Amino acid sequence: MGGLQDRVVLVTGGGSGVGRAIVERFLDEGARLVVLERDPDKAASLAAIGSGELVTVTGDVTTYADNEKAVAAAVEAFGRLDVFIGNVGLWDFNRTLVDLSPTELQAGFHDLFTVNVLGYLLGARAAAAALRESRGAIVLTLSNASFYPQGGGVLYTATKHAGLGVVRQLAYELAPEIRVNGVAPGGMSTNLSGPRSLGLSERQISDIPIQEYLEKYSALERAIEPSDYVGAYALLASGGDALTVTGTVFDISSVGTPHRPPQ
């Protein structure tokens, strides 16, 4: 797109999945990256691909101090921050309301909302001053579950609907200096996991036949890779191609027959 050259971008959860695909694409297009990543091994794997244009910060998106540290790293390394991309999330593996015990419901609510909603708010708050100065942008990873059922269970779907509200409210609150938008991918095979409180921290979405499901039921009848979703992020993060876009979520999922995904 040509709009990412020299853009300074902070990505949370950039060590794998869509986050890693964003990092690789943005580096290819000339951006300079800071990645906030909790997993030290994933952070180390990123260090080899940046050639001085990538800084990794090990930390947790649910801790405000770690978000501040990542913003400070961008300003220290590159002089400013142009874009904050919130990308860390947990999935609930389609756990329905009646599948959850009352104890699990409360604990799962806390964990999913803390990561999927509060994590974005903390990151946006930490980045706000720097983004106002650069007249920059915020891009949040949402989901087709922000619009439709069956993208997850009740807790995940609730967090992604909340994320839609976050985009719309922050676009209002942070205008005119900061544009705020979201990208809503559909399913893909990644290491997206669930909360420990539901016994799902060791499971990954790639453990289920998600690619087979997509090929069978999605409108395009093809498996989707994380890199297939990155174009929307590049557009929204660009320095010129999306200057009129704010308060919008791009639904880029391949919507198909609403069958229940495999458990």
Rank of each mutant, 00 (worst) to 15 (best):
V180K: 05
V180S: 08
S201T: 01
G153S: 11
Q150P: 00
K160D: 03
R222A: 13
L220Q: 14
V167D: 00
G151R: 00
V167G: 04
S201Q: 15
P185Q: 12
Y148L: 14
A145T: 03
I224C: 07
V230K: 11
L236N: 09
A175L: 04
G151P: 04
N144F: 10
S189T: 12
H161R: 11
A162T: 13
Q169M: 11
R203A: 13
L198W: 08
E177G: 03
D207C: 08
T159F: 12
Y172E: 13
S206P: 10
S146N: 07
R179H: 07
N191Y: 03
V166F: 05
V230R: 12
E225D: 14
G152Q: 05
N191C: 07
N181I: 06
E221K: 15
K160G: 02
A232W: 05
T157W: 01
P176T: 05
Y156Q: 00
Y156K: 00
S206W: 06
Q150L: 15
I178S: 06
A234T: 13
M188I: 07
S227Q: 14
S227H: 07
R168F: 04
P176C: 01
L174H: 06
T157Q: 12
V167F: 01
V183E: 05
S193K: 13
Y213T: 09
E225A: 14
G152V: 00
Y229V: 14
R168N: 11
E173S: 13
L200R: 09
L200I: 06
Q169S: 15
L164W: 11
I205P: 01
L192R: 11
S189P: 06
G186N: 08
R168C: 05
I178T: 10
V166N: 10
L200P: 03
Y213I: 01
G194L: 11
H161E: 06
Y233F: 15
A234M: 11
E225I: 03
T159E: 01
A232M: 13
R168D: 03
D228I: 10
D228E: 08
Y156A: 00
S193Y: 09
D228F: 06
E177M: 01
I210H: 00
S218I: 03
L174P: 10
P149D: 00
E215V: 15
A184L: 04
R179W: 01
A171P: 04
Y172R: 15
Y172D: 11
G153Q: 12
E202H: 12
P195D: 13
G231W: 11
R179K: 11
Y229K: 10
H161K: 05
L236S: 10
P226R: 07
